[in-house]
């Protein structure tokens, strides 16, 4: 039986020739956090890491991946949703419907790993995932927040609580509340 290394475990699977990695993950290995959105590598909802590199699993035949290559899915990004990207997402309430967010988070996690201090341009180029709810601005803010948090931790700072991280970043989102017109 063919094998894949997923989230640190070597798993056997059975699938017809040409079955994309996405459907092996979802239907053979029970990992439904990775989503189907388009099947043609346009939307990025199926983004996983293969040896740390973000890949669109919907067009990647599972058989093309060697058992020695390490696949990480959203379920394996951290054991307890504590990856700095996930924490920043929680702090900022980034998800709306949430369906695209596994792919967004995987793309963002790969970005901050490759570029610990990404610019807005880096984010524009790396984050090509589609979100129909329109979470892009919070995604951007959360990536910057996560990058800052990771840099601080590298210098020995303790991880901030999600709520504190949230307060810090929510302050940048231009809120203004005032009373409206009469009548």
């Amino acid at each position: 039986m063919p094998k894949l290394n997923v989230n640190g475990k070597t798993l056997e699977y059975q699938a017809d020739e040409g079955t994309p990695l996405l459907w092996v993950l979802r239907e053979q290995l029970g990992l439904t956090g990775t989503k189907y959105g388009c099947g043609i590598a346009q939307c990025g909802a199926c983004t996983v890491h293969v040896d740390g590199v973000p890949m669109r699993a919907c067009v990647m035949p599972a058989a093309a991946i060697k058992p020695t290559q390490k696949i990480t899915t959203i379920e394996g990004l951290s054991p307890d949703a504590s990856h700095p990207i996930q924490r920043a997402w929680q702090a900022l309430d980034v998800p709306q419907c949430g369906f695209c967010q596994s792919g967004m988070i995987m793309a963002a996690a790969a970005l901050v790993k490759a570029k610990p201090n990404p610019t807005d341009k880096d984010i524009d180029e790396a984050m090509t995932n589609i979100c129909r709810c329109g979470t892009y601005n919070r995604v951007r803010t959360a990536i910057h927040a996560a990058a800052r948090e990771m840099a601080a931790q590298k210098k020995g700072a303790k991880p901030k609580k999600v709520a504190a991280l949230g307060k810090e970043v929510l302050d940048i989102t231009h809120v203004e509340t005032k009373s409206g017109g009469a009548a």
């Binding site: 959203i74 967010q101 988070i105 949230g166």
Partner: peptide, 13 residues
């Protein structure tokens, strides 16, 4: 400005 109740599960799959 209360945090949503459904965020965590939308960040861990």
């Amino acid at each position: 400005r209360i945090a949503r109740l459904d965020t965590i599960e939308k960040t861990n799959g």
